[in-house]
């Protein structure tokens, strides 16, 4: 294949990756922004979505049902985790990280027990190929991009147009003030945590036909989402989107021409440095 072919493929792959990444990272970003906590188990919600999609596709009535069920089930689980765990430790930043590491292993290992150590694919619900001058491309990947885009818009509408969104923004800006105005901050937290998990889950479900479902697939999703959130800025929808495409496309391009591992090393180091040298740290309130 020619250079242009490679480049075009890389850009295409990068765009699709960018959409999925944006969806996953948006969940993390909302939780970051509104609740001011780092959810280390976010990648496991992504993985759970994928595994649930496999179960639905093979035994419980099909892939399309999975796209509805995965976010609902995972969101429900996250809602419970918020009530039972996070609220108990009062969302203290460092305790929350330890607690969500605990959740990470619990979820991951339960999946290992129930689902097993396999990487299992799901047939794509739609079959068509797009023919480009250099190669044919799976139509389903474009469907993934389209659905992700629709969900991104929907989330944006929820945040900017609904009462829940208003409460979320109020809580994000000033928790005490929101509480004083009668916003039930606890309920907002639980819903945001569930919403964030649900977004990760549906992203996970969407990629199963392309990527296969495996119990260890969460870590990569988590790290990439971190990268996106840190670069894109906290709780910022536009920033998350832009960063996801930047990372998706550059990851795609670099991975096609160089080693994917090298690409990850460079990205990780860069992002760590951004975080260190950006005044204000992660939450815009730390640092000297």
């Amino acid at each position: 294949m020619s250079f242009e072919g490679h480049l075009f493929l890389a850009l295409l792959e990068g765009t699709v990756t960018g959409f999925v990444l944006a969806l996953t990272a948006l969940g993390l970003s909302l939780v970051f922004g509104v609740m001011r906590i780092v959810n280390v188990a976010h990648g496991e919600f992504f993985m759970l979505g994928a595994v649930i999609a496999w179960y639905f596709s093979t035994m419980l009535g099909g892939f399309l049902l999975a796209l509805v069920a995965a976010p609902l089930i995972v969101g429900g689980a996250a809602f419970l985790a918020d009530r039972l765990v996070l609220r108990r430790i009062e969302y203290k930043p460092e305790s929350t990280i330890v607690a969500t590491i605990g959740l990470l292993y619990i979820i991951q290992q339960l999946v290992l027990t129930v689902y097993g150590p396999y990487a299992r694919p799901v047939p794509a619900p739609v079959y068509f190929r797009l023919d480009f001058p250099w190669f044919g491309y799976s139509g389903y990947k474009l469907v993934v991009a389209g659905v992700s885009a629709a969900l991104l818009v929907a989330t944006w509408l929820v945040v900017s147009r609904t009462t829940l969104g208003l409460y979320m923004r109020a809580t994000q800006q000033d928790r005490e003030m929101a509480q004083a105005f009668g916003v039930s901050v606890h309920r907002v937290y639980a819903l945001v945590f569930a919403l964030g998990a649900g977004l990760a889950a549906i992203a996970g479900a969407l990629v199963v036909p392309v990527q296969q479902a495996h119990y260890l697939m969460g870590l990569d999703a988590l790290l990439m989402s971190f990268v996106v959130v840190i670069i894109g800025g906290l709780g910022s929808l536009g920033g998350t989107l832009a960063a996801a495409f930047l990372i998706g496309v550059s990851d795609g391009v670099v991975s096609v021409f160089f080693s994917p591992t090298l690409a990850k090393i460079v990205a990780t180091l860069l992002v760590a440095l951004v975080l260190v040298f950006r005044t204000g740290g992660l939450f815009g309130e730390e640092g000297t």
Binding site: V38, T261, T268, L275, F283, E286, G287
Partner: peptide
């Protein structure tokens, strides 16, 4: 490099450097 950060930022930054080392 990292001690400019504190709290949760320090945690995330150390994790990322370590992950880069692992890779």
């Amino acid at each position: 490099v990292t001690l400019r950060a504190s709290g949760v930022s320090f945690l995330i930054v150390t994790m990322m450097f370590s992950q880069a080392f692992y890779l």
